[in-house]
Design a protein around this nucleic acid. Structure first.
Lengths: 150, 150
DNA sequence: TATCAAAACGCGACCAGCACGCAACAGCGT
DNA sequence: ACGCTGTTGCGTGCTGGTCGCGTTTTGATA
């Protein structure tokens, strides 16, 4: 499932885009780096190997990669967007209390997607924005008698 | 279900907040205005009756009203947040193609909420961010043979 | 391998949406 | 009416991201 940098580079060429150092490094960071990188985190990773890369280059590359269908971006909350390879796209649950990000099993959205389709004709694409809520741990803390607070 | 301005003003007093002209006008705009106002749209409505109100006053009032549980804000997409009275809170489906906003029936989220709770212990609060997708009309256009394009 | 148009880059300016510090003002309990 | 303190208007600042410009780089072609 996870693509290699060279496969993604091939996708770039197929799409008519040129392959530059910055672009290759962005892809490398997406393949090998942490799971939900922001543009700025990608910039840091890229600059580790090519210190002169400019922030706007990263933004433009992400935009181009998104246009080609190689990456997608997701909003996990109020902060900056996070980027993923399209092959790794998935829904997210984010805890409003502690900020924890849970990668949602795909079938979690299925009943809702079917309901929206049948009743409203609406085709769900639940990947672009996270669904917020309260994670198990924070819910337990909130429900517990406040023995450690008073 | 829909509150009156005076009821909301009473909520303010109960919460220990003062009732100012700007604050009352923000509430009035929320009660009587359009359905998904942004902070700036609220500012315009407020300024129609009190031209000297400053943008930051509207932001601070919305923040305070949210702290008191009188209003909630929702992100419908990449633009500014939209504000609702808490009594009118509901989920949103937003079309990625045409931008249409559909107020989701509450039970649409139920199966998903139950699944998230049972399997992950996660309590869904699906109101804060819209769920994106493609509305019926745009899906039909996309699916149709492109007779009017070639 | 050299050439060259177009794509991509680095850079700085700029934008939207919103938060904040401060001094003046105004709500409201007395 | 007084005075405490919450609120306002104003300016400034911040984050996350976009844009225009002149220069550099890519990669198809000779």
């Amino acid at each position: 499932m996870s693509s290699t940098v060279e496969e993604l580079v091939a996708q770039l060429r197929d799409g008519g885009s040129r392959v530059t150092t910055a672009r290759r490094l962005v892809l490398t960071a997406l393949v090998k780096g942490a799971h939900h990188p922001t543009a700025e985190e990608l910039l840091v990773a890229v600059r580790a190997l090519a210190p002169d890369v400019h922030p706007s280059t990263v933004y433009r590359n992400l935009e181009e990669l998104e246009r080609l269908g190689v990456v997608v971006h997701t909003h996990l909350g109020h902060g900056p967007a996070t980027y993923h390879l399209t092959t790794e796209a998935h829904g997210h649950l984010v805890c409003e209390v502690c900020g924890a990000t849970i990668e949602a099993p795909d079938d979690l959205f299925e009943a809702m997607a079917q309901g929206a389709k049948r009743r409203l004709g609406f085709e769900l694409r639940p990947y672009h924005f996270a669904v917020l809520g309260v994670c198990a741990e924070c819910a337990a803390i909130a429900a517990a008698p406040e023995t450690s607070v008073g």
